[in-house]
Amino acid sequence: MHDNIKTGLVLMIIAIISATLLSIVYMIVKAPIEQSELNAKLKAIEQVLTNDETGELLINADDLPKNKETLNKYFWNPENYQSENSVIYKSDNGKGWIYDDIYRFNGLNDETIYVLTGGSIGYGGEVKTIAAYVDNENKIYLNAIRVIEYASETPGLGAKISEINIQERFYPILSEGLEVGVKVNKDAGVQSTDDYEFMIERREKEGIVQTSDVMTGATITPRAVASTLNSMYEFLMKVGENNE
């Protein structure tokens, strides 16, 4: 009996000391963690709001959010949609979902720009993507994307989605391409091409993203990004219909 009490007490003391240590460390690193998460998000937002061809921002440089307060100014909560566990919309085919941190910016030419964060299941877990869609007189096009979470993807294969030159294969896509749906070239049943102009045209107008030449052996991860982009477009179209 005495031994059991002693054993229990020792374990309790170790657990209490460990919990105290963790609480203290958490209190110290909480702010840096939040800051690094925010910095990564702000960086991704700036990148998706940049025209890939010209390198110029789609919004006024002064409007670019630089901290949490300025970012929250652009927070957009669409009518008739309610957030559940931070997810505001799930696609009709169930393959992609949109998170509730949606931001709306005014472009330099009075167009509306939506920055959405969404996810889909890749090879090992969720692949999270942030993307900017430009609504120009009810014609929506995809400006740019950044894949921000890919930790469960296979290193050297699916995890190559982290490389910017591979992400660049996904944008821009015009409304014609978004309308028929974004898909990787393997799913579209077309071979990869060395003709750069043709590759761009096929992506912009038919939504065919060529990844088989740069991500050999990994189709599931780029497919997850394509599903996320399709969910985002589907969501924006539904929001637009509701507003009409």
Binding site: T7, V10, L11, I14, A15, S18, L21, L22, V25, Y26, V29, P32, I33, Q35, S36, E37, N39, A40
Partner: peptide
């Protein structure tokens, strides 16, 4: 109870390292 005690200590330090890396080497 040495093994559960050691595991609690090791897990605590791993969590500390995880939090520090999250904050400073993102």
């Amino acid at each position: 109870i040495r093994i559960p005690s050691y595991i609690v200590i090791i897990a605590s330090f791993v969590t500390v390292i995880d939090m520090i890396m999250h904050g400073f080497t993102y």
